[in-house]
């Protein structure tokens, strides 16, 4: 299999690399969007390794740069960022449909990429699955207990904490604090999105790392953040405490890729892909 370089999109402004395995026509395609400002190869080439591993398993893939990122240009159309992301993903899905006959798609995104994938997954019926890596999360009561209780038994830490807080009132109703680097969506909205996604048959894979330990610190926090939808059979979650946010160690990266590959094979078997509900 050879990868193809494409300039594509409504303004011919997007750049991406399609991987189309032989005899892949009609299968579910996997689209990987930028993680932060890193161009389409991904942090430490994560997206290259991921797409090639999925190609080897029979999945057509596209890793590409959203408008204004990497090698992609702006369209100059005066759209909001959300409109632009939706239009870019629409262009990406059209390309993969043209190259491999894909009718349905799985989106993969890390950090801001997870946010962008979420936006489109919540609204586009062609998206049948999504992998959110360190996506939306909120500090919960559980998070704070896990974070602060160990420190309470440490007199030195307790003294420093009191000193830092200056006696501020900590007895009010705990509030989940969104701590994403970019403007987060309200939690209720995200829960409604997840609920809508699984209601229409989507499969979700949420993988969160120890690299976001300043607001997420346990596997239980998926349920604490998003409620019962996390227990839906269509939702798979994984908390990888030892990994960092961008999977800098090759062993951590290999385990992540194997996890995504296994989840895809289970939920979108290559032979049956394209015929999902």
């Amino acid at each position: 299999m050879r990868e193809e370089a494409h300039r594509f999109g409504r303004g011919c402004h997007l750049v991406g690399i399609a991987g189309v395995p032989a005899a892949a026509t009609g299968e579910t395609g996997v689209i990987v969007v930028n993680a932060g400002l890193v161009h389409r190869i991904g942090p430490f080439r994560l997206h290259v390794e991921l797409t090639r591993q999925l190609n080897a398993s029979g999945y057509p893939t596209l890793r590409f740069d959203l408008s204004t990122l990497g090698d992609s240009a702006a369209t100059g159309g005066g759209q909001t960022r959300t409109q632009q992301v939706c239009a870019d993903l629409d262009d990406a899905m059209s390309l993969l449909k043209a190259r491999a006959g894909c009718e349905r798609f799985v989106l993969v995104g890390l950090c801001s990429g997870a946010q962008n994938a979420h936006i489109v997954a919540a609204t586009d019926p062609r998206v049948s699955g999504a992998v959110f890596l360190d996506g939306y999360a909120y500090r919960t009561i559980g998070y704070k207990l896990r974070h602060y209780l160990p420190r309470i038994v440490d007199p030195g830490r307790w003294a420093r904490l009191l000193l830092r807080r200056g006696g501020a009132n900590g007895g009010g109703k705990p509030v989940s604090e969104p701590v994403f680097a970019v403007a987060p969506a309200p939690r209720e909205e995200v829960i409604a999105d997840f609920t809508g996604m699984v209601a229409r048959g989507m499969k979700l894979y949420l993988v969160y790392s120890g690299g976001i330990s300043n607001y997420f610190n346990h596997a239980r926090q998926f349920r604490e953040c998003f409620g019962k939808v996390m227990s839906h059979p269509a939702v798979t979650t994984r908390y990888s405490a030892e990994s960092d946010h961008t999977y800098i160690l090759t062993g951590d990266r290999a385990r992540l890729l194997d996890g995504i590959g296994g989840w895809l094979t289970q939920n979108f078997p290559p032979a049956a892909a394209g015929r999902h509900p």
Binding site: F44, R45, G211, D244, H245, T246, I248, L249, T250, D252
Partner: peptide, 18 residues
């Protein structure tokens, strides 16, 4: 970056992500 230090084996045969 990490919640706890990693082992020598974890970082072996790599340079900063590669």
């Amino acid at each position: 970056r990490f919640t706890r230090p990693r082992s020598d084996a974890d970082i072996a045969e790599q340079w900063l992500g590669f």
